[in-house]
Write a protein that binds this DNA or RNA. Structure first.
Lengths: 344, 344
DNA sequence: TATAGTTGCACAATCGTTTGCGCAATTATA
DNA sequence: TATAATTGCGCAAACGATTGTGCAACTATA
């Protein structure tokens, strides 16, 4: 079955016996600039409509070196935190006449590298990425090609790139400090991927809160290795089994806390009577959990909209990007998952 | 700041004093077919590598009429049901060398129409869409242009298009029948968007289950108008206020049930003692809710992978699509949100 | 030593746009 | 009635790739 031939500038031009350029100019609204008569203009407009002309953006992009497309690379589209951000960015993009090619890096550097490759081969005008972390040569290469790029959620540590994200240090500090103020001293943290900036900042916030309250750091309580549900489950299970069980768990991500819940309930423990928990990332369901969960909410709207604006600025001005680092405040939402412990 | 010049076939060809075609053929692995000597081949390969050549997919796409890109249009990327599907489809696509342009239609036909336009202007090779419903002229137009398209989750009612989704009728029937078997007779349903196939099927499943159990249909118990959290909240609030309150609520989507929970807890009611609830869409958190929720789980993995395979088949064979309708079974997951009612 | 076959590559058209420049025809000015 | 200015539009190059065809030079065959 043959694909039927699309309407092109040429087909319109032939039908009307005018040149392709004239058609192009009219359809781009440049009639006055190029002094195309009203008669011709109207005629072209009408037939374009009739023939249902849709410009070929490949040809346009090739000629114009501009595709009105951006790339979005995130580590896990299904993670509600990223899903929300993706949806917000897509909307901003759409409102500005941009399409977005989404790519899930699955927390793997190789995937990130190859996605970056396909994106540049597709001549996207800019990239928003939450990098996997670790290596950054491939990001440096993007920067060198002068492709506008902004990082979100996770910063690139050894490369100056514009960044928009939460103040993870403060967010974690506040949460852990709250636990301490409620009498907790044995507080565990289940971390995400170790060499990501988010994780480093959250762990540091945890450590600093303990230090400031003169609580010694117990390395056995700093566990975990990725942001998945499975990690939360495994680590929480282990934590609940150690001799002197922690009285509180600080989960550094929404999937981690879900896994922790699974472990906790599997052991028939109660929250917060038997164990307290605080999670990073507030979710729509957080209030409706068996024990409404105390969380550190991230400003996803702001992250998405600022990141997009930064990118647009750079695309439009075509300047080399200022490596802004924008840290947005988190919001600490107190619910019922933390017990007040009274020691004596 | 000028964007630096990319490496092209031409720049390589000039550097080596060979023709562009030779470079092209070598880089496409067609050396033997076109009898390019090993010496030339190796040389070209090497310099391409050195110069970090990345093919321009716009040019390729223009010439080849094939972009290795598909479009994905869904009504709400942030809805975890769609987020999961999007992530699965993106992965399949990536594994097959395809990129995906994602577009959120926000449940609005106009947005859907314009997204379809941009997608076709970008010359995507195929489309996976969960249509808003209502109109379908724009989808017919896609079909007429012979652009491969498959619908997921929601069928197009007045247009023959391949479809992959859950057996919503049975899913709803099972759920409501379960409520009845547990002694419920006043069962409310909070529906989503009325003219979507998903919704129609779920409501019909509800009605049929009642009929089969000789329970008369009370129209005041069939409420709601979209799949959002707000709708769930509003309708549940109203339902809880009517004189003879229903004993059970069947929420036809995960966000709806979240809104219902908000309404229920706001009124200090208990689940299931005061009111039972069943929700469509199982979610990772469903077991950890204040009352673990009984749900109708949809096979998102299968939906995503089958839809993608269908699309690929069509793209590769370039045949006109068979309008397959694939209905996948749902899974009824019983937890604690339904009370057994004993009347006498 | 002609002729045929093979090897190794280049030419040029094509995909659908955009845009600087040029040029005829028309109108305005002197 | 010449000349100048304006109006209205077409030509052709360029963007970067792919591919059918052609054509030298070289090797093999008779």
């Amino acid at each position: 079955m043959k694909r039927q031939i699309d309407t092109t500038l040429e087909s319109i031009s032939k039908q009307l016996n005018v040149s392709i350029s004239t058609v192009s100019r009219v359809l781009n609204g440049k009639s006055k600039k190029y002094r195309i008569s009203k008669k011709t203009t109207d005629l072209i407009l009408k037939t374009a409509q009739q023939l249902d002309y849709i410009p070929n953006q490949l040809a346009r992009g090739l000629r114009l070196k501009m595709t009105n497309t951006i790339g979005l690379i995130i580590p896990d589209i299904a993670n509600p935190f990223f899903a929300k951000i993706a949806s917000l960015i897509e909307k901003s993009a759409r409102d500005n006449g941009f399409s977005v090619i989404v790519s899930d890096s699955e927390e793997k550097t190789e995937v990130e590298i190859s996605s970056l490759q396909t994106l540049t081969s597709r001549k996207i005008d800019g990239i928003i990425i939450s990098p996997v972390g670790g290596q950054s040569k491939h990001l440096a290469s993007i920067k060198n090609r002068n492709i506008p790029i902004v990082t979100i959620d996770r910063q690139c540590l050894d490369l100056e790139l514009p960044f928009v994200g939460s103040d993870n240090f403060k967010g974690a500090f506040t949460a852990v400090n709250y636990l301490v103020k409620n009498g907790h001293t044995r507080i565990a943290i289940i971390q995400g991927i170790k060499n990501t900036s988010v994780n480093i900042d959250r762990v540091n916030g945890y450590i600093e809160a303990l230090k400031e309250n003169s609580i010694s750091i117990d390395k056995r309580l700093i566990v975990g290795e990725n942001f998945g549900e499975g990690n939360g489950y495994v680590e929480a299970s282990l934590l609940l089994n150690i001799e002197k069980r922690p009285t509180a768990i600080f989960a550094t991500g929404n999937l981690i806390s879900l896994g922790a819940l699974r472990a906790i309930y599997e052991k028939k423990l109660r929250i917060p009577e038997d164990i307290s928990i605080i999670s990073f990332d507030d979710q729509p369901y957080s209030s409706y959990l068996a024990t409404p969960m105390t969380t550190v909410a991230q400003p996803n709207h702001e992250i998405a909209s600022i990141a997009f604006r930064l990118l647009m600025d750079c695309i439009e001005t075509n300047k080399t990007m200022e490596p802004y680092k924008i840290l947005l405040p988190t919001k600490f939402i107190i619910r019922d998952s933390v017990a007040k412990i009274t020691t004596h």
